[in-house]
Design a protein around this nucleic acid. Structure first.
Length: 271
DNA sequence: AGTTCCCTGAGG
DNA sequence: CCTCAGGGAACT
């Protein structure tokens, strides 16, 4: 569920919390968290100062000099600052400790879909996870957005969720930006008119930037690294509102599966 | 291009 | 008890 706005909010909170800290120890509780990586890959991080935190798509990248620790949170991954003496739950998979402070940073993930990789900083952009990603939706220009759409066969909603098209959009924001632009999720991406593509581009920027400003959406239990919830769920017009009245026309919000994902839309407003 | 699977807790 | 949620890879 963490999508671009949630990962951005986590990155901002981590940037704040990690400023000026150097890693003193790493406690890997579940080796499978590293996927193809090995536990020994983490060793170069010990002793390194944190030099930055950034986001690429839904990936979170903690920079420590010439190494990075990259996370994908998938559905239920998250961070929490805790006193080392505080009890931890069985879903904590990695713990970072620091020279300067007593508090430790815990990565937890109930469903274990998330992963972490320790990579050379120079190799991040060329690693498979990042190399395949499309442009950032808040950076891509209208012309490029329109021309990329034309090359995509398939339903518009599925294309928006495809991280190689643009990186960072998930189920919530795909539904919301389609409603905002009054476009049906089922239409062909390639056949979207330039005017409708422009409306979608505007909606994409508006929805994502509002969501970033609101700290993301907290449905179920998303929180940033400081334990703060997001507030954009209060602005959701269609996501999770099947059966409720469309805020624009009053027709009931419809719900159906598209490409294996639950989709919410107004069949009167969205054409 | 659609379906299945991974995993677990929440909700019916 | 059963079903659902969901990102993304793997499979059909």
């Amino acid at each position: 569920m963490p999508e671009l706005p949630e990962v951005e909010s986590i990155a901002v909170s981590l940037r704040r919390g990690l400023r000026g800290l150097a890693i003193s120890a790493i406690d890997l509780r579940r080796a499978a968290l590293l996927r193809r990586g090995r536990p020994a890959d983490l060793k170069p991080l010990v002793g390194r100062a944190i030099t930055g935190v950034r986001r690429r798509g839904k990936h979170l990248i903690i920079e420590a000099g010439d190494r990075v620790l990259m996370f994908h949170l998938r559905m239920t991954g998250g961070f929490e600052w805790a006193d080392p003496a505080a009890p931890d739950d069985r879903h904590t998979h990695l713990v970072l400790r620091f020279k300067e402070v007593r508090r430790e940073l815990r990565f937890h993930d109930v469903r274990k879909f998330g992963f972490a990789l320790c990579l050379p900083a120079a190799g991040v952009d060329s690693c498979p996870e990042i190399a395949v990603l499309g442009p950032e939706p808040l950076e891509i220009g209208l012309q490029e957005f329109q021309s990329r759409l034309k090359t995509r066969r398939g339903r518009l909603k599925s294309v928006l969720l495809d991280q190689t098209f643009v990186a960072g959009i998930g189920n919530i924001y795909a539904d919301e930006m389609l409603f905002e632009s009054r476009i049906r999720p089922l239409v062909s991406a390639a056949r979207l008119s330039p005017a409708r593509a422009a409306r979608l581009w505007e909606a994409m920027r508006a929805v994502l930037s509002s969501a970033v400003a609101a700290g993301g959406s907290t449905v179920r239990n998303y929180r940033n690294a400081d334990g703060e919830v997001g507030h954009f769920q209060e602005n959701h017009k269609v996501y999770g509102r099947s059966g409720e009245a469309c805020p624009a026309c009053g027709a009931p919000i419809r719900h159906r599966m598209i490409g294996g994902r639950s989709s919410h839309f107004c069949s009167r407003c969205q054409i």
